[in-house]
């Protein structure tokens, strides 16, 4: 069967690609567009390592078919820093050592950014619930939660 031609926007840039119907957004991001910041952990929507936003809503790229992004606005971890200037969340993750192996980190950052856009002043419990779809096997979550709360406080100033 012919491949699908998709026109979409990724991190603000217009992008066109060809994909098979069964290819996920994650497959296309990583294998066709070489945006390898989004990670494949479970490929079943459990771990959140492939978190991206699509039309402003947080989704798992492994649970979206690439053809569904026709006409959509996709934001990935690659769009988070402004050139060499890290996003405040990225800087706070470094300051708080909120990562160890780093595989889950892009997903946590994308998820945390979408939380702070919706709720600039979250409680600890709100942070934990919002990030419940992201699994980290190294940090024990505490440093991640503190980094997010600290970023939120700084961004409100």
């Amino acid at each position: 069967m012919a491949r699908n031609h998709v026109t979409t926007t990724i991190n603000g840039d217009p992008v066109e690609f060809l994909c098979d119907t069964e290819q996920t957004l994650l497959d296309v991001l990583r294998d066709e567009l070489h945006l390898t910041g989004s990670k494949e952990g479970c490929a079943s929507g459990d771990c959140g390592a492939c978190s991206v936003t699509m039309d402003g809503r947080l989704v798992c790229a492994c649970l979206v078919l690439a053809v569904e992004t026709q006409g959509a606005e996709v934001e990935t971890i690659e769009g988070m820093a402004d050139g060499d200037r890290l996003h405040p969340l990225q800087q706070k993750f470094l300051d708080h050592a909120a990562l160890q192996c780093g595989v889950c980190t892009p997903g946590f950052l994308v998820a945390a950014k979408s939380l702070l856009e919706r709720n600039p002043d979250p409680t600890e419990s709100e942070v934990r619930y919002w990030l419940a779809g992201n699994l980290c096997r190294c940090t024990g979550y505490d440093k991640i939660v503190r980094a997010v709360l600290d970023t939120a406080a700084e961004m409100r100033e």
Binding site: G45, G48, V59, L63, V64, A111, L131, G133
Partner: peptide, 9 residues
């Protein structure tokens, strides 16, 4: 139902 990314879909 699921976490936020699941609820978004």
């Amino acid at each position: 139902i699921g976490g936020i990314p699941i609820q978004s879909r």
